[in-house]
Amino acid sequence: MRMPPFTLHTPGSLDEALSLAGDLQSSGQEFDWVAGGTDLLPNYKWHLNAKSHVISLAGVSELTELSRTHIGAMVRLQDLADSNDVHPLLAKVSSMVASVMIRRSGTVGGNICLDTRCFWFNQSEEWRESIEWCYKCDCGTGADCRVIPNQNTQCVATYQADLAPVLMCLGATIHLAGPEGGRSMPLTEFFELDGITRNVLAAGELVTHLTFPSDILDWQGDYQKLRQRESWDFPEAGVAVLWKPGPNGSPSDLRVATTGLESIPGFHSPEADGVLASWEGESSIDELAEAVRKAVRPVLNTWYPPSYRRKMVKVLTKRASSGLLEV
């Protein structure tokens, strides 16, 4: 496998990176950001939507700050996993991403912005030519989606990153910067349902960091991940359930989020709010698990069949909630 040739830019600061991006944009040149490279470079080797310019963030030191309420986009996943400062569940879920070698390279920002995956898409150029391409990388052919043919309005490739559900449940705010300036939003509003668009990042924009409310340590909970092998497999389904312990053993607040099931992570506030109002312990957990199962719509484009992944969402939700019974 060979990457197509591209020009690599290595800015030393955020300002420099943004001005580079602005220059490229104004001269009509497409580019990609690269952080750890563990997602982008394999895709480049497969000739998946490769660009002729790549801006590396490796030398941008402003993006590596790490504290309880602030995580820079260039923080390595392994550093997050090893950190004693961050919420313990965040360290745990980070340690469940891929393998240690990939975590030492891969970054928090890269994980959040992970490209969506699909077995009709994550293939070599020759392979994709043999299926006459697909919607996500049609190579100018206007090819149809291979997962759900004859719809072609939306890409259904699957978002398979682990951090997002936990970050969303912890109330993370995501901060972006671009040639036009910066903006911030709750992480729950960052993602946009489509396997190609994926999120609100505009051309030239990048994720700089995440911040968390000061009550972050009041939240408890768990993340459960479904996969074939307990090493570098992507999540076939992932469920985070977090709560604030309330009086009488019931939670005072409850958040549920999922990943690995659709083109963006799911934040299930109606389902969580629905059971929180009339909390009855175990039966509420069952109710929640069933509601989350109903809320997700996986398709056949990852290792496990969608029917199984959907059923497992229920099991994972229950397991992630099991701490609620110990309150």
Partner: peptide, 28 residues
């Protein structure tokens, strides 16, 4: 446990790579 050459709906081998052709790792 997990190794399988999977052929998709159109008869294509869908996992000709070592991420999706799942050889057990040290964890398994």
């Amino acid at each position: 446990l997990s190794e399988e050459m999977k052929y998709g709906r159109s008869g294509h081998l869908i996992n000709p790579d070592l991420l999706d052709y799942k050889i057990p790792t040290v964890h398994e």
